[in-house]
Design a protein around this nucleic acid. Sequence first.
DNA 1: GGATAATGATACGGGTCCGTAACGATCGGG
DNA 2: CCCGATCGTTACGGACCCGTATCATTATCC
Lengths: 117, 117
Amino acid sequence: MPLEIRPSQALRLWRQVHLDLVRDDEADLSARQTAILLTVYLELPPHTVRGLAQQLGVTKPVITRALDTLGKLGLLTRKRDEADRRNVVIQRTVAGALAVERLADLVTEHAKEIGGS
Amino acid sequence: MPLEIRPSQALRLWRQVHLDLVRDDEADLSARQTAILLTVYLELPPHTVRGLAQQLGVTKPVITRALDTLGKLGLLTRKRDEADRRNVVIQRTVAGALAVERLADLVTEHAKEIGGS
DNA sequence: GGATAATGATACGGGTCCGTAACGATCGGG
DNA sequence: CCCGATCGTTACGGACCCGTATCATTATCC
């Protein structure tokens, strides 16, 4: 059964969550960083720079820089792949999992507040 | 009747929409810019720099710069308030309305794809 | 009218990100 | 082995954004 949501509800939900993200701003991630973070935490490993670049439709340096920032924030980690030392495996962290969970709560909470019309 | 959405659904929805936003990137707005844009298009006018700064919990220069960028993109316009010429009224544009509508469609489309579990 | 307050814009130094191009490291096939 | 291909990273010049402090303009109030 699909999730039913009307355009006006979608916009109000989008606005409320973004308002919270801006106000809390413990993170203040860009759209690209958010897409990377959620991909790593929702899709099955392993995740590589090249794979993420293909999924997002951006160049590899973009991924490298985003990983620098997300790593600095402690939201994920990089590890060399010992099987093929050219590859780098992106791994999840506890802090990252908490941040993702917090985002999920934020969305579901505001969804509840959004009335019918 | 509230909008029912589970955390796992929320995350998948959030990821899919962000992936689309990154891939299309006709805009590539930051979280702050998105919050401003949606506030202007969802809340009743008039909108001022000071009012937006208060709602977002940020300083006025942040709003001014965001309005510069959003104005350059044609998503909204500034106009001096003739009643009180200190104020600047932020106005909607056709392009902005289309962008907001497109975002709404993006969210509702992906919501449909998101299954029950 | 002059002092005061309020509004939005600007200056500044610092940081981050962009896209293109090049780079070092590593693997694999002949 | 060695040469080409494939990783991820870094260099570069340019653009954008940040927060603080300051500015010019306009309104208000005595």
